[in-house]
Every structure is written in C-alpha cells, then in structure tokens.
C-alpha cells in the first residue's frame, strides 16, 4: 500500500509526508520485493541501468553508480552475466542493488536475506547499516527474527494485518532479564516474596523461572533467596531473544 501496489480498503497513508501512491514520492523510495525476479535475459549491469533510467538517472550518473553498487553487493565479477545464470542468492543481491540505485531516503526490503548464505546475510546486514548511517530509513520485513534483532533499531509486531505493539531494540536487552533459579526448597511463601522484584513461573518445588525488570535487582533477589533458607544452587541469567518476545506478544501459532 505504501508503495502503491495495493489499494487500501480504507484510511490513508503517507510516505515522507506525501500520500502513498504518488508517483513522484517514489523517487525517494527503494523497494526489494520478496523473491525478486526480473527479465532473465538482462545482464546485471543492464538491469541496474534500466532501473536507474526509470528513476530518471542520466548516463553519467549511471556510469558511476552501477559499478559501485555491483561492487557493494559482491556481484562485480558477474556484471556481464545474464540473470538466467544467477542463483537465488545472487538474484537477491542484484535486487537489493536495484532498490538502492537512486540513493533512496526510504527503503522497503521484503525478506532481503531469504536465499542467502551466511556471508550474504552478513553483507546485507552491513549494507542496511550503511544505509541507516547515511540517514536513510530502512523498513525490513522478515520472519527471521534473529536478523531483525541484530539489524533493526525498532520493531513492530504485526498480527492479522494490525500492529500489535512496537519496541525500541536499542538497548532492550538491558531492560528485562530472565533468570533460571534452582534451589533445594522453593516454598510457596518464598516464591511469593520474589514478587517485589520479579514475576515468577514456578516449574516445580526446586526450580523456577523469573523475569526481573532489570539486572540491577539480581543481587538483591539472590540475597533474598539465600537468607530465606531456600539454599539456591543455580542462578542463571538468561538472554531474552526477540523470538521469546514475539511469542509473548503475538501468542501461539494459530495456523495463520
């Protein structure tokens, strides 16, 4: 909808302050579709030149920009090769290059690392960071939450087409912390006493999982457990992954 490919059933949307679907705003927008495909008979260079011309770039600018982008996405040795000989990962790379051909201010990337090997994924991550550093806004749509976690500043969780919640990922790991606790005896009144620092999920009478608001309170929790006589023998802070957060926010898979 933001790119004008699909008509909205209602409401309105704006990109850079301009109603979505306006042709001129697309001069400032780049897009990599999921499963990028294009004319198989074009070479990598021809493809980028074609997209550059569609964006109104002149021959002089294309002469600079095309080799730069081919080098950026690691396809410089394949500049004269036709797309029909490209692997899925190479198609993703050239697709990313066409999305960046006109130095857009806003970039929409739909599953950009799909089909890429670990080296390719790292390269895409680096390119996204470089775009962010030059001031562009990158919308990364992905089901690979680990990619989101290491790449994005902000995340929005979408369920049934609606944004359920958004999170700022910059430093979010420092906010909440989950700890696995094992002790000789975790009486119910001891567990209840933990509620002043954390929420608890008792697994059995010797172990529980607690989520504290911050790491700052962990020494106090540990002191409490020792002083209350529960005799803790394991106290392991655990990293909360974006996948855990996703499951917590979006809920169980309902086959959608």
């Amino acid at each position: 909808m933001l790119l004008g490919l699909v008509s909205p059933s209602g409401g309105e949307a704006f990109v850079l302050g301009v109603p979505s679907g306006e042709v001129e705003i697309r001069r400032k927008v780049g897009f990599l579709p999921e499963d990028f495909r294009f004319y198989q008979w074009l070479t990598a260079t021809e493809l980028l030149e074609f997209h550059g011309r569609l964006c109104g770039m002149d021959a002089g600018r294309l002469r600079e920009r095309v080799p730069y982008l081919l080098d950026l996405v690691g396809l410089a040795p394949h500049r004269g090769k036709r797309l029909q000989g490209f692997s899925k990962g190479m198609l993703q790379r050239i697709g990313l290059a066409q999305a960046l051909i006109h130095d857009p201010e806003v970039i929409f990337l739909d599953e950009p690392t799909s089909g890429l090997d670990p080296m390719g994924r790292r390269l895409v991550r680096d390119i996204i960071r470089a775009q962010r550093d030059r001031g562009a806004t990158v919308f990364l749509n992905s089901h690979l939450l680990s990619e989101i976690e290491v790449t994005c500043d902000q995340v929005a969780f979408i369920r049934d087409g609606e944004i359920v919640t958004t999170r700022d990922l910059r430093g979010w790991q420092e906010e909440k912390v989950r700890v696995r606790v094992c002790a000789r005896k975790l009486a119910p009144q001891i567990v209840a006493g933990l509620s002043q620092w954390a929420t608890c999920d008792q697994l059995d009478d010797q172990s529980l999982s607690l989520t504290a608001a911050s790491r700052e309170v962990l020494p106090e929790i540990l002191c409490y457990l020792v002083q209350s006589g529960s005799a803790p023998f394991e106290f392991t802070p655990q990293r909360i992954s974006l996948e855990d957060l996703f499951m917590e926010i979006v809920g169980e898979d309902r086959g959608l």
């Binding site: 790119l3 004008g4 490919l5 042709v23 001129e24 697309r26 001069r27 927008v29 897009f31 579709p33 499963d35 990028f36 495909r37 294009f38 004319y39 997209h51 569609l54 964006c55 109104g56 697709g95 066409q98």
Partner: peptide
Amino acid sequence: ASGTIQAIATKPVA
C-alpha cells in the same frame, strides 16, 4: 503473476 511488475511499478513511473 511472476511479480516482475512489482520492481517496475514501484519506480517513479505512472
């Protein structure tokens, strides 16, 4: 059907 048109239709072209 193939989605090829998406890369063109999202360029600044009516």
